Computed example of a mutant assay.
Amino acid sequence: MATTVRRDTLTLPAAPLGPENPLPALLPLEEAHTLAESERAALPAEMARQVGYGPLRSVLPTRILDGYGRQRAPASLDTLVIENDRLRVTVLPGLGGRVGSLFHKPSGKELLYTYRR
C-alpha cells in the first residue's frame, strides 16, 4: 500500500481560550531586540542588515492567552492523516504540528498515550 495523506477533523473536549492578556511585554521595547555592534559584526551580512528591521513588540511570539475557562465543550480540530500499510499518524497542524495519534495497524495498538474522556 502506498502512503496516503488526507485531511480530516478530530473532535476533542476543549476549554475556550478567552481574550488575549492586555499586559505589556516582559521587556521594554527598546531592549527586547537589540544587538551590540560587536555582535552584529559577527553575523552574516544579510542577517545583520535585517536585524533592526521591524522589531517584535514582545519577547513572546504571541500574546499570552490566560483567560481560559474550565468548562470543556466539544471542539473540532483540523487534522492531517498520514497512512500506509503499517502506521496511521494523525497530525494536528492547528496545535503546532503535534502528533495526536500514532496507530500501529499490524498489532492494532495505539502507540501514544491519549487522554480522552
Rank of each mutant, 00 (worst) to 15 (best):
M1W: 12
M1C: 07
A2V: 15
T3W: 10
T3R: 13
T3H: 12
T4C: 02
V5A: 14
R6F: 08
D8K: 13
D8E: 14
T9N: 05
L10N: 11
T11G: 09
T11N: 03
L12H: 08
L12Q: 08
A15L: 06
G18C: 09
N21K: 12
N21F: 10
P22N: 06
P22T: 02
L23Q: 13
L23P: 13
A25V: 04
A25G: 10
A25P: 00
A25S: 09
L26W: 11
L26T: 10
L27M: 10
L27G: 05
E30H: 06
A32T: 05
H33D: 00
T34F: 05
T34I: 04
T34R: 12
T34D: 06
L35P: 04
A36F: 13
E37I: 01
E37L: 03
S38K: 12
S38M: 11
E39M: 01
R40A: 07
P44A: 14
P44I: 15
P44F: 15
A45N: 15
A45M: 15
A45V: 09
A45H: 14
E46P: 12
E46M: 12
M47A: 13
M47D: 09
A48H: 09
A48C: 03
R49Q: 07
R49V: 05
R49E: 07
R49N: 05
V51D: 06
V51R: 08
G52V: 04
G52H: 01
Y53A: 03
Y53H: 12
Y53Q: 07
G54S: 03
P55T: 00
P55D: 00
P55L: 00
P55A: 00
L56T: 00
S58F: 00
V59C: 01
P61N: 07
L65H: 04
G67L: 01
R70F: 08
A73C: 09
P74S: 02
A75S: 15
A75R: 15
A75D: 13
A75Q: 15
L77H: 07
D78M: 05
T79E: 14
T79C: 14
V81T: 15
N84I: 02
L87E: 04
R88M: 11
R88D: 03
R88C: 02
V89H: 04
V91M: 13
G94D: 08
G94W: 04
G94M: 10
G96F: 08
G96N: 05
G96R: 02
G96S: 04
G96E: 06
G97N: 11
G97A: 08
R98G: 12
G100C: 14
S101Y: 07
S101A: 12
S101T: 10
L102I: 06
L102H: 02
F103D: 07
H104K: 01
K105D: 04
K105L: 03
P106F: 03
P106N: 05
P106S: 02
S107T: 12
K109F: 05
K109D: 06
T114A: 09
T114W: 07
T114E: 07
Y115C: 02
R117Y: 00
